[in-house]
């Protein structure tokens, strides 16, 4: 399969087998390791990227399904105003323990804030509901979302 994907603002030509989930194209072919494998079942959110601004899981859907979408991986977040703000807030709020779920949560937080610049705590929880954290960093993640929202200068 030859396919062009728009990833972090660049066109990338990929050659993985047709049924390859996007996550494997990102991690194995393009060496973008920010999105993590957690379950392969779209149950945990570790593999999330932004696809046209929506937090989207990548461990099941084949890469071809993302053709024409603007994909932002955790590596590309810093190049967006909102993503950079979210990452800085995560660092400031120590919003991680082991850090394995963190890139996916930063993606979710960015998607939320792009759509809703000042979400309530309940809205933040709803956005994060499909994302698992086993260490219990949740309270700090929610604080990071609030911190990032409070710094929105637009």
């Amino acid at each position: 399969m030859e396919l062009t994907l728009r990833i972090n603002g660049r066109d990338r030509s990929v050659r993985s087998e047709e049924d390859t989930p996007l996550l494997y194209v990102l991690r194995d072919e393009l060496k973008l390791k920010g999105a993590k494998f957690g379950c392969g079942l779209e149950q945990c959110g570790a593999c999330a990227v932004l696809a046209d601004g929506e937090a989207t899981f990548t461990c099941v859907s084949p890469a071809a399904a993302f053709a024409g979408s603007e994909i932002v991986t955790p590596e590309g977040l810093a190049e967006t105003e909102c993503g950079a703000r979210v990452q800085a807030a995560f660092a400031e709020a120590s919003a991680a323990q082991c850090g394995y779920c963190t890139p996916g949560l930063a993606i979710a937080a960015t998607a939320l804030l792009m759509r809703n610049p000042s979400p309530s705590r309940e809205e933040a929880k709803a956005e994060m509901q499909m994302h698992l954290c086993r260490c219990g960093s949740h309270p700090r993640v929610l604080r990071a979302v609030e911190l990032a929202a409070s710094r929105n200068r637009k």
């Binding site: 920010g34 990452q87 919003a95 963190t102």
Partner: peptide, 13 residues
């Protein structure tokens, strides 16, 4: 923490 938030913290995986 910075690299965790940036997705560049390297896990064995």
């Amino acid at each position: 923490i910075e690299s965790m938030a940036a997705g560049s913290y390297r896990f064995l995986q």
